[in-house]
């Protein structure tokens, strides 16, 4: 079996660990280390970063040897759209208020699915807004304006 890094599961897991661990160690150099007796704020993260790097190297080597593939299908569409939909919800809560934010979220997240039927999604959005406004705003008294701006 030939080593193939592109789709190699443990290779990428190892890379992830090594990079984050190393980043933590480098950033921690700005914080005083102190000594074992009086640990500074840099001590704990530096040690942890080192541990993560060491484990990462092990995982990476294991990936190179075992060559296990990443399994499962990818929905690139969902991977982009759902986090974006989440983000937009945050922005809209700050700018236009609870009802429009939630209403739009129902559409934006539905796009990520395999089927998108406009009428169906609209009905669902209306129901969700009604239920959530009732439960969260009136029922639980969360202090968010239903509409904002103007």
């Amino acid at each position: 079996m030939k080593f193939d890094w592109r789709n190699n599961r443990d290779f990428w897991a190892g890379v992830f660990f090594i990079l984050t661990g190393a980043a933590a160690m480098i950033i921690s150099r700005d914080y005083p280390m102190g000594s074992a007796l009086r640990m500074g704020p840099g001590y704990f993260p530096t040690v942890l970063g080192g541990i993560v790097v060491v484990f990462g190297i092990y995982v990476l080597i294991k990936g190179v040897i075992n060559n296990e593939k990443v399994v499962g299908n990818w929905s690139l569409r969902a991977l982009f759209i759902l986090p974006a939909a989440t983000w937009i919800f945050g922005v809209m809560m700050e700018t236009v208020g609870f009802i429009p934010a939630l209403f739009v979220l129902m559409y934006t997240s539905s796009i990520a699915g395999k089927e998108f039927k406009f009428l169906e999604v609209t009905i669902m959005a209306v129901v969700m807004v009604a239920v959530c406004t009732g439960v969260f705003i009136y029922g639980l008294g969360l202090p968010y304006p239903l509409f904002k701006g103007h």
């Binding site: 989440t86 919800f89 979220l105 129902m106 699915g113 669902m124 969700m128 959530c132 969260f136 969360l142």
Partner: peptide, 23 residues
């Protein structure tokens, strides 16, 4: 799943009333 998204986003926002948490 859109319903789960809705409850998740409201839940997150309401912990600290913060859009940053949502991001």
């Amino acid at each position: 799943f859109p319903a789960i998204m809705g409850f998740s986003c409201i839940g997150i926002y309401s912990v600290n009333n913060s859009a940053f948490d949502v991001y």
